[in-house]
Design a protein around this nucleic acid. Structure first.
Lengths: 215, 215, 215, 215
DNA sequence: TATGAATGAGGGTTCATTCAT
DNA sequence: GATGAATGAACCCTCATTCAT
């Protein structure tokens, strides 16, 4: 992205204004629908500047992906503690980090989600690789150094991993869905965290070896 | 929808042609990107007629939602056998019905999926209600007359319900995602059904009372 | 050009309005500079219609070339009498036909001229062929059945052809140039025809066998 | 052009850089298409300076015309030897000078050519006059001190002048046209000079008194 | 002097919607 | 009922020109 030096020379505050406007636009609409007109209006810059900085809509989009990945790494992945070897506990920790990450960067978060939905995206190889790395790194954050001896012996561990992950993602999606339209910063999340814990307990009860079994 | 009487007076075959063309368009593209030009071309009708029947793009969209809900009820929900009281087995049966439903009506299915993704949708109350009813009815098909005695005693049944559902939906989503871009009718689904069964077994093993416990 | 049926179904008068506006625009400016905005304004049609008729600027341009070639053939080439075997007389006749053709269709004439100037044109094969045919046909109108026995014996006939043609074209260009900016229909051309005749006489005197030589 | 003193105070090398960049731009594209962005990039100066030196694109264009005229005089007109009194021979000499001039300054040459093609140019009076002077001076280089006794007696000398000039220009144009797109420095011009000589011989044969006539 | 960021009008093009026929 | 021509706003993008630094 060395091409876009002009943009990187701007006030950081102005960069932020533009990136946020663009991010919100691409988070709310998909690539085609996203309007550069709205972006410049919301960013408070002249019509031509966006294309002075970014050459075209696609390059802006790619720049945003790169930018969003960086944020995701810095403020999400980096904060996950892989020393926790209890899988469910680690997922719990991840959920907490993810929650504050989402709280601080809802547009980034939604934007990243959209990238994967946009079928005919055709990203440049560099970005495609970064996204793949991201996925791989996500998996290691999830699975590396997990203590598999905690799981019950009578079922395939790999499948348990997935079932637990799908369960938790299901819970999160359902929650997000029920929040749709509301401003998340006005919601008291505490009761949901409690409920979440209850689900996690059940997962442990069901998928972990029970103490009694050791007798 | 009383406005649209004119449309309902058409040959059923012509109605179908129009609805299918529109459905495919809205299934493939989202609301803004969907082109009324393509719809009329694929439906083989004049440009003016679409707006004679439907007043505007939005009304057509709403009509389609209604239409798709009907198909979903007739060819999906109606075929689910709620006599099966074993929850996991019922989910398995539902998955099978859903699979042939998707196979027969991929456009309807994708279209319905898109509806929920389109955030700023702002549907009229009538439709919002129908969608909610649909969800409620979906839940009863899932949960009504389920034999809760099969579940282990030490955890909340309601939560088990959800965990099992999320697990299964997670599996399905991951599968669909891996099929993206391929024509599903050319895929041999058999191995996936087997894998699916294995997951179901694990769910039973983990969330059901184990025979040994009765001794 | 079968694609453009929509355009051919218009009132002939409206077609003419549009073609004339476009022709004038492309005659005055080259391809890139030519503004579709000005065309629609001068043609008195809505902004979208031009692209309803022609898909894009390039297709309009190609259509115009085809159209201009037709006019050129019908109102220029077809009117040239190749029975005249005296080369200079034939060129004189051609000049007369060309003059009324230019008088009646100045935009067509200038437009055709521009086509050959536009280097990076990259025309579709069909048009490229038509233009080549035009050139070939132009040459036969010029040279076919010319009585070469009239030319002096001591020089190459082929070269005489060219020298005479270049001479005449030179005269015409210089004339056109001196008329630049004036409306040609307000100019009395008679004296120029007389001057032209004088040049032709000189060409005959110089390039033809002289009667004395036969003695 | 008194306004542009600022420009004339620059390093001569910098002036050259700018003028050459601009010349090439205007030689390759016509006025509207020529991009000031490309000029400043190729000249290696800041965007603002171009407009500091020249006020606007049009003034730069006018300045370039003036500049190109100077080059044309210095490296074309000045090199023509008017002592040669044989008209055809003089034209031959001019053609040779013109050829090396074109070879050394193709941009200047093409640029000057474009000026006359651009219809709606509307040049300031000063330039219009210089161009006219140029033409007049060109004519004297052509016609001054020509030995008219060489021409045949039975036709108007003035008209012979023109016929010969048009013939030669016609040959040159046809040649240039056939070279279009090729890099002229890779072409072996020798055979063309020979052909040119043959044409000149014919012109002499036809328009000059023949030796036999003196007998 | 010198820079290059900023502007806004204009470029070609698409598309939902209307309306004369 | 039915057509498809017509409109105009909005789309992404370019470019000469200005101006704060």
């Amino acid at each position: 992205m060395a091409i876009t030096k002009t943009f990187k020379n701007l006030d950081e505050s102005k960069q932020k204004r533009i990136l946020n406007a663009a991010l919100k636009e691409f988070a709310t609409n998909d690539y085609e629908q996203a309007s550069t007109n709205r972006i410049v209006k919301n960013a408070g810059i002249g019509k031509g500047m966006l294309f002075y900085y970014f050459q075209n809509k696609k390059e802006l989009y790619h720049y945003l992906i790169d930018y969003a990945i960086n944020i995701m790494i810095d403020e999400y992945f980096s904060l996950i503690d892989t020393k926790e070897s209890d899988f469910v506990e680690r997922l719990k920790q991840i959920a907490q980090v993810k929650s504050t990450y989402y709280y601080n960067h809802p547009d980034v978060s939604n934007f990243i989600g959209n990238i994967f939905l946009d079928d005919q995206a055709q990203l440049p190889e560099g970005l495609e690789n970064r996204l793949q790395d991201l996925q791989i790194r996500g998996y290691s954050l999830l699975y590396d150094d997990v203590d598999t001896s905690l799981f019950r012996d009578d079922v395939d561990v790999e499948k348990i991993y997935k079932l637990i992950r799908w369960s938790i993602e299901g819970y999160q999606n359902e929650l997000m869905n029920s929040f749709k339209g509301q401003n998340i910063s006005f919601i008291d999340l505490e009761p949901y965290w409690e409920e979440f814990d209850e689900y996690l307990e059940i997962l442990k009860t069901s998928f972990y070896k029970q103490e009694g079994e050791f007798k």
